[in-house]
Design a protein around this nucleic acid. Structure first.
Length: 520
RNA sequence: GGCCCCGUCGUCUAGAGGCCUAGGACACAGGCCUUUCACGCCUGCAACACGGGUUCGAAUCCCGUCGGGGUCACCA
């Protein structure tokens, strides 16, 4: 039975690299009809675990990465918080001690540091002297009498080597003599991550440990712990990590200002920022950041796009398939097609997937998903009336594939719902302050005032007739009309805008624009 | 610095000795379409890190060099 796990520590946010790891674990479990387990690594946590965990669970759920056992739903191996499994770790430490695989060490941190520095000075690899290792009860008594406190260290082998057959790396070998006597239990009795992780993986019957590459060098000590405890070894698979845009460094949420120098990254960030600001969301880099999954949810990306994109960061189905549904991924995912090299996060490629999945949506669904954005931005009152929904549907159809994320509706719908529009300065100058623009627009307005039916076809026909009568080209007036009725230089098709706005509003806005152009 | 991992277009990747004058996608550039923008269509730019082997033949195998990254906590 395949059982994989994702073991986040409650940090308060879901990192895009973490999601990729979770996704691969989940996909692998689903592919093999196994279980995906969520375990919370909170052995060190002093913070509020529940509130720091909520965004992580929420993000995974939003992406559709569901777990079979975990903190909120329980399961046969409960509890799923490491902080609630301390007794098991304690028992493991006792067993390690009893078997001679670990020892009580009374060295102070200063003494260890001194040894490490000495080794560095002499340019030889550091290996603890075990000078303060207690080998008998008498030693314990003696060291304790000196006022020392003990930690428990692993008594690592000092000869031979270990070979791991990693599912993505192949065979990797380590010399035991290079491995340190790592601490597994602190002086205060609490246990460290590596021990807890190994014990839990055994207790949860994890068959495949799929995790990021940064854990590869930690594997020997974990194997040592597992072997010393007589645990069967899980199968390991170390995934390449997700790197910064345009570099090979590990993606980090702290370095956003550096990433912003990357044009693509900056573009995606600023696009999201504009939406967030209209929604009145907090936009500190700590909470609103394309390295964090919440960013995409807030701005209105589709989970399908993110999942599809992320699946292709480090994995591919074949030489040309790009679009894969969740079901197809579950069906085809395999670790042997995971690449070994780290892969840069490319926000523009994610954007392209978003564009693709957005097109699959029908108008009705877009109305449902975009309406909340308009409500939050106070462009539509809650609850939305049937008329508002109808109008929104028309706007969405007119805007078409210009709407890349749900939040984009704000920029395309605002002037339809506002009573009073503001002009974009550049567009106003260029289109309405041009000599003669006002007069022409005024004539056009008078012409439209007499129009029998106010719909797209009639508007187009009337406009054509108007430019022919005036002996001008469409480009000579259409931009002025657009700025007059929308306030903007770009937007949906002009006749659509006029039709949706209606006769009264359109004519009133044109009149006001003519006045503004003349007086300002 | 020690140990470990990695190295194909700017980016994600295909490639398991001849199918490679290296394929696809994103990005980028130019053009067409066009009322703006977006879309669409066409074209283009662009890579096997380097050096030695092995072989009739190497992006693919071996060795070395260089480069990049990870890790060396009483963090996870």
């Amino acid at each position: 039975m395949v059982r994989t796990r994702f073991a986040p520590s409650p940090t308060g946010y879901l990192h895009i690299g973490g999601v990729r790891t979770a996704l691969f674990c989940w996909l692998f479990a689903r592919r093999h009809g196994g279980q995906f387990i969520l375990r919370i690594d909170d052995t060190d946590a002093e913070r509020n675990v529940e509130s720091a965990l909520a965004p992580i669970l929420h993000g995974l759920r939003w992406l559709g990465i569901d777990w079979d056992e975990g903190p909120d739903i329980g399961g046969r191996c409960a509890p799923y918080y490491q902080s609630q499994r301390l007794a098991g770790y304690q028992a493991a430490v006792e067993k390690l001690l009893a078997g001679g695989f670990a020892y009580r060490d009374y060295a102070t941190t200063e003494e260890i540091a001194a040894e490490r520095e000495a080794a560095q000075r002499e340019k030889r690899p550091f290996l603890y002297s075990r000078q303060w290792m207690a080998e008998s009860a008498a030693d314990d008594a003696r060291f304790t009498a000196e006022g020392r406190k003990a930690v428990v260290r692993l008594k690592m082998p000092r000869a031979g080597s270990l070979a791991i057959d990693d599912l993505v790396r192949g065979r990797v070998e380590f010399e035991w003599a290079r491995e340190q006597d790592h601490v597994v239990q602190r002086a205060d009795g609490t246990c460290l991550y590596h021990l807890a992780s190994v014990v839990d993986d055994f207790d949860f019957e994890i068959s495949h440990v799929i995790r990021a590459e940064e854990h590869l060098s930690n594997t020997p000590r974990q194997v040592f712990i597992a072997q010393s405890l007589d645990y069967p070894l899980p199968i390991y698979a170390h995934l390449p990590f997700v790197a910064e845009p345009g570099s090979k460094n590990k993606l980090s949420k702290r370095k956003l200002s550096t990433y912003l120098k990357n044009r693509d990254f900056a573009q995606v960030y600023e696009h999201g920022l504009a939406i967030a600001e209209r929604l009145g969301l907090a936009t500190s880099l700590d909470t609103f950041n394309p390295v964090i999954v919440e960013f995409y949810e807030a701005v209105g990306y589709l989970p399908a796009a993110i999942v599809n994109y992320l699946a292709l960061v480090g994995w591919s189905l074949d030489e040309r398939t790009e679009f894969l549904s969740r079901e197809e991924l579950m069906q085809h995912f395999s670790l042997d097609r995971v690449v070994k090299a780290s892969a840069s996060f490319d926000p523009k490629k994610l954007w392209a997937f978003q564009d693709h999945y957005m097109r699959q949506l029908g108008t009705a669904e877009k109305v449902d998903r975009m309406l909340p954005y308009l409500v939050r931005a106070k462009l539509i009152a809650e609850p939305a009336s049937a008329a508002d929904r109808e109008k929104l549907a028309r706007i969405i159809d007119a805007a078409g594939d210009r709407l890349k994320v749900f939040g984009d509706i704000l920029a395309y719908a605002d002037f339809f719902f506002q009573d009073e529009i503001t002009y974009e300065a550049d567009a106003f100058e260029k289109r309405l302050r041009k000599p003669g623009a006002g007069e022409l627009l005024d004539k056009y307005r008078s012409e439209l005032a007499t129009l029998a039916t106010w719909d797209v076809a009639s508007l187009e026909q009337a406009t054509q007739a108007f430019i022919e009568a005036q002996g001008i080209k469409i480009g000579d007036i259409i931009h002025a009309i657009r700025v007059a009725i929308t306030g903007k230089g770009v937007g949906p098709g002009l006749y659509d805008c006029l039709a949706i706005l209606g006769r009264d509003t359109s004519l009133a806005r044109m009149r006001r624009a003519v006045e503004s152009a003349a007086t300002q």
